[in-house]
Computed example of a mutant assay.
Amino acid sequence: MFKKIVLGTVSLLALFSLAACGQGSESKDTKNDIRTLTDAQDHKVEIPNKPKRIIASYLEDYLVALDEKPVAQWTVGEGKIQNYLQDKLKDIPTINYDLPYEDVLKFEPDLLLIGSNGSLEGGKYKEYAKIAPTYVVKNGDNVTWRDQLEDIGKVLAKEDKAKEVEKDYDQLVKKTKTDLKDKIEGKSAVVLWVTNNAAFMVADNRSSGQLLYQELGFEVPKLTKDISKKATADFSQVSLESLSQLDADYIFLVNSDSGAEMFKDPLWSNIPAVKNNQLFEFDGESSWLYNGPIAYTKMVESIQTVLK
């Protein structure tokens, strides 16, 4: 009898021990709801798993591509938003691009994603980090939208989704190059942006320039090559006199100033691509001025439409 009692007691103790181990594991899992990642400025950031209230000013393209919605979206002043994303973000309130502390607090974020080092000047990082975990995404001249997508995918534990987005985009580019082979091979193209009666040309390795020349395979006009050597931003101002010598087969025009006086100038109307009706116009609400997988996808689709 005594032996049975001892055995029974040992069995109960073993059960209690297993239960305790189970509770300890569960507690550990709760702690693992936070991952520590190192951002582009070497901050060690405690990232919550499955954040619910994200602010990612000017990075909304990436969130939407990864099936996430921010709690607030980028704007400049009144009404200047990324219109090409509004089928997914139409009900999302805006927050000014410079992320005022009071406004950030109001939205009670559980994660802040910052897209450029320059936006953190003046000790802003410490202030933001007091509000929510703040992660600086890869950025800089040599950082592509793919680099940023993969970095954000890592932060959100959606690396597989990021790879899927890139794969879908690559397939679209490949199909476009095949379908439009006779319209692309041996043809040169340029992207111009007109705003406030001034023209700006995209550099050959930035934004839509990288898409045209590196991915789709259009040839680079001489003027674009010259502009690109000194480019410090995606778009560089170019004079109408220079444009009159533009040797591009196609012009993709992002027109933010449809009433610009320059369009009435003979120099403009004598640009070869304009004379040959090979100018394709998009309004300032299109995706051509932005970066990200959705922006680039829409650019490729628009090229398909006008050149088919």
Rank of each mutant, 00 (worst) to 15 (best):
Y296D: 11
S242N: 14
K183S: 08
K88E: 11
V104K: 09
Y101H: 11
L279Q: 15
D98W: 09
R35H: 13
K229D: 00
E78H: 11
T75G: 08
T134I: 04
T144F: 01
I184S: 02
N142Y: 05
L289H: 10
S116Q: 08
E185T: 13
V45N: 07
F252D: 06
L85W: 01
V45S: 05
M299S: 10
E121W: 01
A129R: 06
D160L: 14
L267W: 04
L112C: 05
Y290A: 15
L253S: 11
L253Y: 01
G123N: 03
N117I: 09
V173L: 02
D257L: 09
S287A: 15
K44A: 15
V64D: 04
L37N: 06
K4Y: 12
D91F: 01
Y125K: 06
K229A: 09
S27F: 14
T195K: 12
I271E: 06
P100C: 05
I114D: 01
F282R: 10
S116H: 13
E68D: 06
A248T: 06
L113R: 03
L211W: 03
L267H: 08
T305F: 00
Q73R: 14
D283K: 09
K106G: 03
E166Q: 13
L12R: 06
T9C: 15
R206M: 12
E164K: 15
K126A: 14
Y250W: 03
L63P: 03
V300L: 01
K124F: 02
V10M: 09
I114K: 04
E215M: 07
K177C: 02
N83F: 11
K158L: 03
G153I: 02
W193S: 12
V137E: 02
D182V: 04
N196P: 10
L15V: 14
E166P: 07
P51S: 04
L156H: 15
E26R: 11
S208H: 10
L120E: 03
I5E: 11
R146T: 15
P133H: 06
N255K: 12
K163A: 13
K69T: 07
L253M: 12
A233Y: 12
T134Y: 03
N83V: 11
A199D: 05
L253G: 11
K31M: 09
A56I: 01
D141E: 14
W288E: 02
V274R: 10
